[in-house]
Every structure is written in structure tokens, then in C-alpha cells.
């Protein structure tokens, strides 16, 4: 019904180079609401964008006032820290390396990157775009969640449960 109404108001005639867009009271056509549910970027989108920027800046400044970035002793190549840990985002891979250097350090990261790159070309099921956790793509959702949870668990183990010589230890046992 809506579509039929659209046709009436906005008739399409290939021979016409002009058309009647709308008749409304106001200073221009499409005041505030276009036929396709669109709104002016300025101010609707940009005011939000600006607000979000101020929020991000405020949070970063707040955190920076409260917590200092770590700075340990000067680097000493003769004296290694034990354990020596990679930055947190690579500590999951480091955890995998402790099981197998080749599989964990090279093969798995390479597989992850290649799978991510190929993903949109393999999953071509057109359904379920535009909504969170669509029912139409339950398998994809479950598989990706397993990947995310595995990454998080590996990072948590590497970051908090590994002590000297990469032995398991509990953070509260000192």
C-alpha cells in the first residue's frame, strides 16, 4: 500500500526531465522526513558525532588523569624479565606458542587472517543483514562467538595465569 502511494506522489516517467516532488507547506520540500526515512545529516547525525567525540575525549582524559602509563626500569638486554610477555593483544598467540611454536605462532594466526579475509566471499547467504544476531544466520553467529570466546580466554590465561617460566600460577598466590 505504501509503495502504491509512493508511485502516486512521485510518478516516474522516463520522458520527463522534471517532476513534481511534493507539495508541502514550509520552506522546502522534504521538511524533516523524506519518503525513504532519511533525515538531514546536519544536524541530526553530526550533533551526535560531535557529542560522541566529546565523550571519548573526556573519558580518555579522565583515565589519563587517574592512571599512569607503566614505565619500568631502562631496557637491559643482559637481564630478561621472567616471564617476558608480549603486549596483551598478542599474549593469546604467545599462549598458543607455548603449546606449539609453528602451529600456535604461525599457522593459527595465518589461518585467522585468511579466514577473516575470505569470510564475506564464503558466507554469501544474503539473509539476516541489518539486525543483531539474526535467526537466519545462527551457525555463523555461533562459529564467530566460539572464535571470540577462545581469543578472550587465551588472552586472559596468558595475561593473568602465567608466571615465571610460563608456568601456570594464580594471580593471588604470590
Amino acid at each position: 500500500m505504501q509503495a502504491a502511494k509512493k508511485e502516486e506522489i512521485f510518478p516516474k516517467d522516463p520522458n520527463k526531465t522534471y517532476s513534481l516532488m511534493a507539495i508541502v507547506d514550509g520552506d522546502s520540500f522534504q521538511v524533516e522526513k523524506g519518503p525513504e526515512d532519511t533525515v538531514q545529516s546536519w544536524p541530526h547525525l553530526m550533533v551526535r558525532e560531535l557529542g560522541l567525540f566529546l565523550l571519548v575525549l573526556a573519558v580518555i582524559l579522565g583515565v589519563s588523569l587517574l592512571f599512569n602509563a607503566p614505565l619500568e626500569e631502562a631496557a637491559n638486554p643482559q637481564h630478561s624479565t621472567n616471564p617476558a610477555k608480549a603486549p596483551w593483544y598478542f599474549v593469546g598467540i604467545q599462549e598458543l606458542v607455548s603449546y606449539s611454536a609453528l602451529l600456535g605462532g604461525i599457522v593459527t594466526p595465518a589461518l585467522i587472517v585468511v579466514s577473516l579475509l575470505l569470510l564475506p566471499y564464503l558466507d554469501r547467504n544474503p539473509k539476516g543483514t541489518g539486525v543483531w544476531f539474526s535467526r537466519d544466520r545462527r551457525v555463523a553467529t555461533i562459529l564467530f562467538t566460539i572464535f571470540v570466546v577462545a581469543m578472550v580466554i587465551l588472552i586472559l590465561i596468558g595475561q593473568f595465569l602465567r608466571g615465571p617460566n610460563w608456568h601456570l600460577y594464580l594471580p593471588w598466590s604470590n
Partner: peptide, 18 residues
């Protein structure tokens, strides 16, 4: 160039050598 930086990058770059 502190201990944290030096050893983290040592570990990270060792992964590449595997």
C-alpha cells in the same frame, strides 16, 4: 625502551622467527 618494551618486542619478534 624500558624492560617491558624491550622484552615484549623480543618475545613478539621471536614469534615471527618460528
Amino acid at each position: 625502551w624500558d624492560q617491558l618494551a624491550f622484552w615484549a618486542v623480543t618475545v613478539g619478534s621471536n614469534i615471527a622467527s618460528y
